[in-house]
Every structure is written in structure tokens, then in C-alpha cells.
Design a protein around this nucleic acid. Structure first.
Lengths: 374, 374
DNA sequence: ACGTGCTTGGATAGCGCTTTCCTGACTGTA
DNA sequence: TACAGTCAGGAAAGCGCTATCCAAGCACGT
């Protein structure tokens, strides 16, 4: 990256009819227009101006109402958010806490949250944990300080009791302060939750794969501590054995929940002598990493080794062979979370269950017919 | 999605007459502890408490300092953000405005912004426009109301003058109110900017492709209004002709800046009789859509038709054949934007130029040797 | 003619914090 | 001992807004 300065073009993109907020020069700071200014200009009291500019239960006579709005417009008034928040005792901020916003799993959910929130005039802030579960609690605490009206935590579910307890505490404090909290995929804390049916989805997938004639399964299982990964592994195991197949322990290898994690895990599986069968990676990005590893090693894909993932990340739908996976309505999950947020808190925590849907594609051929599935 | 309620122990959820029978915990709102509470508990004045809890130029005697901190901790004090913002006249919020947070181009940049911001204790809010350039200005206006300390707009660059002017106005108003603004890829507004060298990158790509022996080029050019797309097209054209090749007008087809847009554009190109040559899609997601279309039509890829993209989206690095593209350091761009934000406003706007780097992969074979490149 | 209700504008008390400004206690020096 | 010169704590003035309370105006009904 090279740094340069461009001279400010004598650019006067000014529209005289628009808010005359243009400053005298680049260095001066304009004193912001306050509601008092508007009230004075409109010749009404501060109270009336407030009632006119922002809604209120109280009515304002139409002519005054118009006068205030006109004054506000001509002065370029824009309400001071923090002041309103303070007077009202709450903001219109919803905090979103995720591991990594660059990860499509989270960014797709975030898109759902943002969409639903913007529709309702809410602002969403985003906090990332970099997969450090301790930071989740910290973010919730910070959001409490910000007097956010709501928070959605897309969960780590580490299973580490103290960490979990800390989060539970912060969430409780957040709600005690009058905020609403929703967790995604985090069943162990008594608060409104969107539960992803990871176990069931993985089970369905296993059964479907057995149905296609696959019998020998390996699993790229993600980090041992991550409950999401654990559930998917457990579900897959259960589904497989219910259908009469088994997942041998030595064919379960752990690795990061990332593309590179899947790549490395697949490599170690190959090094251990795995050469034929079906590999279930507990999420799509790992599956893609695994496919890359297979390709590098010249393994026939999907002939010798079939691959399946989980999530159905949309940017990954065009890999070849097309990836069999379990579709999760990620954007819808984000929207669901906001809907939950919007509802009054119930006496006991609500839970919304979200099912995954098995999508069979070419990466897992139908061995009963010999042709690729779907 | 199925909605269910988890039964609370001794559930009375469906008894309409039941008063809020839940014990203290879930229904009551705890009065937040304020700094006054802390001051009283520590036996100091409000002023001293403030100075101790949050930094200040003024010093506080060590023993008092500790006493205040201890009191704050034991009461579970957490500063009221809006109140601080109001007293200080400024929040620590940086607003990020993008088209679509689910798009990896934007989410990767967002990750950079968030990372850099969190490092410095800043909160980032995200606003999306859904590719409607008018909403950019609206978001900036809203952020001014929120008294955000900074805003970064990852630009549409529609080239529509009135829309542009409106954004310029809002940005000026934002800065006049004391905020800092940075635009990404938006050269026409006099404000600090991170400029992506789209034209140059596309030119370099074209030259490299000609170097590989490609001569017949088609371009999937994105929406006609989008300057980013236009620049890439123009750069590619210029680069090609500088290297002695041409891009014929009838082989330039426009389409959405998305996977499906690329897919549709490629299809129409094929329908128009294009069957051999090299296709440049102005971004990676379009390129992937194009590859899907080629595959569907049974075109030999990359034998008959080679494909190149732009951006080097990381989740797309594992498509087959591997996609030739121009790498943009997206996360770094986000970080750059924050660095720019952190600096004092200069007398004239700063510009940081970011270069793309051509990455040749298997989707554009080396025709001079017959082997795939890279 | 006189309440009685209703409506609607205005004055004003905070919301929780930062930040002057003031004051008393201390230092060091003559 | 006296006196400027520091230093740190405390009182209090807002920051811009909302919301509560009051009062004035009006339309009725008796």
C-alpha cells in the first residue's frame, strides 16, 4: 500500500436548498443544532418541540407540529442519540456477539440480524471474540454498560463450566438491567434461545449417507471443546449406528473449525492410511479444506473418498464436486433471534428450534446406483 | 423451523390469570448502580469516583483510588455509556456502512475494521444499504445523530451525481459535527479515502493473461452503474490493448455483482455463441457463477474457456479449477480505514492507495506451454 | 352562571456522568 | 514563622433530551 495525498479538489458539491451544514473550513467544528434551537426557531417550548419531533403519547396541534418540523428541517436538526438514550433510560442498540465476522457462517447470520433490526429502526453493534469464549462474557458486560436494549450471542458453547457460568452471570445481569438477551445454539443458560438441531441434522445426514450405500465413515470433528462440533459428531455417530453402520474411534480426528483445520485433519487421516470411505466434516469450510487435501494427494474424489459437510454456506455451493451438507437457514436464524428479542420477556425462557435439512449433492455418490446423487 | 416452549418446572405459562408468579429473578429490574453509589460506598465525592474509575488528567491519591475501584467492583458497577457520551459530547462508536454484510467482500473488510477498532476500545455499528446508494447518506445522517465519533463507508460509487452529492453533504455535516469519516473506494468526495486500484489491478491482470497466450477476451462486467465494476472493465480493456489484444464490445455483458449475476451473464454469453476464450468476471463471486454456468453447459473449463475474477475471496480459493484473480488485502483495507480514522484530520484529505496483486491459478492455463499456470 | 372534564402548551426536574472552579492541606524557601 | 506555589478532593454546573406536573383554554351539562 502506498500513501499519497490528493489535493482537495475545489469541489463544491453544495446544494443550497439542502441542510446548510457545510462548515466554514475543514478544521472548524460546527456547534450542533439542539432541540432548544429548534424550539426557539419555531416559537414553541422545548417540550412541544420534543413532542413534535419525536413521537409522544401527547398530541401537538397540527399547525405547531408543522412549524416545529419545518424549523427542524431548515436548521438541519438531528437528535442527539446519547441524550435521548439517557433521558429515556435506554438505547435502541442491539449488540451482536460472534466469533469472527469474516466467517460466512457468522456473517450470514449477522446479515439476518441486521436486516431484521434495521427494519425496526434498531442499530446493531458487532463484537467479535476470535473464538475466545471468555470474551463473550466481556462483550455482554460492555453492552450492559452501553445500555444496549438487547444482545444476541452466537454461541461458543465450550462446555467449560466456569466460562459458561461467567456468561450466564453476565447475561443475567444484562437482563436484570432491563435488557433482552437471546443466545443462539446455547442451551445451558436459562434465557431465550435459538437452538440449532445439530445432533438431529447430523443424524439425518448419516442415515441418508448410509442410504446411499456408504458404510465406512471418518469424521473431521472440529475442536474437542466446541459443543456445536461435539453435537454434530455425536449425532452423526448415533445416526450411523441407527442405520447399521459405525464410526470407528480411530477415524475421528479433531482439528480447527476452519478450512485449514479441515485440510490438516484430512491430511492426518490420509497419513493414517485412510483411503476409501466417506468423510463427514462437521462444517462446510472444513469439508472444503478436506477436499483440497484430497485433491493435493491425488485421491479420487468422490470416487474413493466421499465428503460431506454441514451448514450449506452459500459461497461454497459451487465447489466441485458439489458438497453434500446439512442446510441451516442461517439468515433466518439471525432474523429469528431478533424476533425473539422483540417479544416481551416471558415468565420462563423461550426456545426456538431450528432444523437442518440434508442436501445430497455430488460429493457423496449414490453407491447403490453408481451415479452421483442429486 | 418449529417453535416450541421449553416447559418450565411447574409451568404456569398458559394460565392467563396467573400474575407474575416468578420469583424475583426473571421479572424484576434491578436499579443499576450509578457512580454516585460507588462514591458513597467508597466515602468519596462523585468527582473523585469519576476520576478514579475512568482515567483523567487529574490524579487521585492511591489509597482513595483503590478504595473506589474496590467499591465499584463489589457493587458490580458498570459505567453508563450514554451518560458518558453525553457528558463528553462524543461516543466511542465507529459506524460501518456496507452493502451487504453477508457478502464476503464486505464481511472480510468488516473483520478488519472490527479488529482494529476493538483493539482501541471502539465499538463498531454496522449499517447495510442493500446496494441502495441513497441509504448510504441516510446511514451517515443517522450516525451523526448518534454522535458516532467516526464512520467508514465502503462505497457504492454509483456515479449518479445527485446521490453522490447527497452523500458528500452528509459526510461534510458529519465532519462538521466533529466526527471523522473515511470512504473506501470513493474518490470523488473530498474526505479521507482508501482507494482501491481497481483499474490498475485489472490492467495488470489483462497483461498477465495476454502473457499466458490468451487473446480473445470476454468480460462479465457487473452493473453498468457501479464505478468499481466500471473501473475494472476499463482497466482490463486498457491493459489488454496495451498488450496487443482487444476486448470486443459485443463480448462485454453486464449483470448483477453476484454469483447469480455472473451465472446469468455467462449463460447469455454462451447463448450468443461464445465458445472459446478467456472470460474476465469483475469479481470472484461472479466468476464462480460463470464457472457454474460453464459446467452446466458442459464447456471444457479451463480448456475451451478460461476464467478470471477479482478480489481473491478466501472462501472461494478452493473452487476447481483454482481461480485466477487479483488479490485485494480486504482485511487490511478495513484496518487501514480505522488507522486513517484515528489520525487527526489533515488540512486536505488524505488518500491511501491499495494495490491488487495478480494471482495466476489453474483457471487460466498457460497457453504458451500448455500447462496450467502456477 | 358555574362547575366538571378534557385537551394541550409550558415550565422544570432530573437522567448519570465529566469537568470546571474553588478550597484546604501540604510542600519548600526565605 | 511566613508566604508563595502545588496538589488533590469536593461542590456544582451543565451536556440535550424526556417526562412529569401545572395551568390555561374550551366544551359541555346542570
Amino acid at each position: 500500500m502506498t500513501e499519497t495525498r490528493t489535493a482537495a479538489p475545489g469541489d463544491a458539491a453544495d446544494d443550497p436548498s439542502a441542510p446548510p451544514a457545510t462548515p466554514a473550513s475543514r478544521t472548524e467544528r460546527a456547534a450542533a443544532v439542539t432541540l432548544s434551537d429548534v424550539a426557539r426557531a419555531a416559537g414553541v417550548s422545548l417540550a412541544t418541540a420534543s413532542r413534535a419531533v419525536n413521537g409522544s403519547a401527547r398530541k401537538v396541534r397540527p399547525d405547531l407540529h408543522d412549524r416545529v418540523l419545518a424549523a427542524a428541517a431548515s436548521l438541519g436538526y438531528s437528535a442527539n442519540g446519547p441524550a435521548q438514550a439517557m433521558a429515556r433510560g435506554r438505547t435502541s442498540v442491539v449488540g451482536l456477539v460472534v466469533h469472527d465476522i469474516a466467517d460466512p457462517y457468522f456473517s450470514t447470520m449477522a446479515a439476518g440480524v441486521v436486516r431484521a433490526a434495521e427494519e425496526r429502526g434498531l442499530v446493531v453493534t458487532i463484537g467479535t471474540t476470535g473464538r475466545d469464549p471468555v470474551k463473550e462474557a466481556q462483550h455482554v458486560a460492555a453492552l450492559r454498560g452501553q445500555r444496549a436494549s438487547a444482545v444476541v450471542v452466537v454461541g461458543s458453547r465450550t462446555g467449560e463450566a466456569p466460562v459458561q457460568a461467567r456468561l450466564a452471570e453476565e447475561v443475567a445481569a444484562f437482563e436484570a438491567a432491563g435488557g433482552r438477551a437471546v443466545l443462539v445454539s446455547q442451551e445451558s443458560i436459562p434465557v431465550d434461545t435459538v437452538v440449532l438441531q445439530n445432533e438431529r441434522g447430523a443424524g439425518d445426514l448419516a442415515r441418508a449417507l448410509v442410504g446411499l450405500g456408504h458404510r465406512r465413515f471418518a469424521v473431521l470433528a472440529g475442536p474437542p471443546g466446541l459443543l456445536t462440533a461435539r453435537d454434530r459428531l455425536a449425532g452423526f455417530r448415533a445416526g450411523a449406528s441407527a442405520a447399521g453402520a459405525q464410526v470407528q474411534d480411530e477415524l475421528v480426528v479433531h482439528g480447527d473449525f476452519t478450512r485449514d483445520g479441515g485440510h490438516a485433519a484430512m491430511l492426518s487421516l490420509l497419513d493414517a492410511g485412510f483411503a476409501r470411505g466417506c468423510v463427514f466434516a462437521v462444517n462446510d469450510v472444513m469439508a472444503v479444506g478436506a477436499m483440497a487435501a484430497l485433491r493435493e494427494r491425488g485421491v479420487d474424489l468422490p470416487g474413493a473418498v466421499a465428503v460431506a459437510g454441514f451448514d450449506d454456506i452459500s459461497t461454497l455451493r459451487d465447489v466441485t464436486p458439489a458438497l453434500t451438507t446439512v442446510r441451516l437457514p442461517l439468515q433466518g436464524i439471525g432474523e429469528q433471534a431478533v424476533h425473539l428479542l422483540l417479544q416481551e420477556r416471558a415468565a420462563s425462557p423461550r426456545t426456538v428450534h431450528v432444523d437442518g435439512e440434508v442436501v445430497l449433492r455430488a460429493s457423496t455418490p449414490d453407491l447403490t446406483t453408481g451415479r452421483p446423487s442429486s
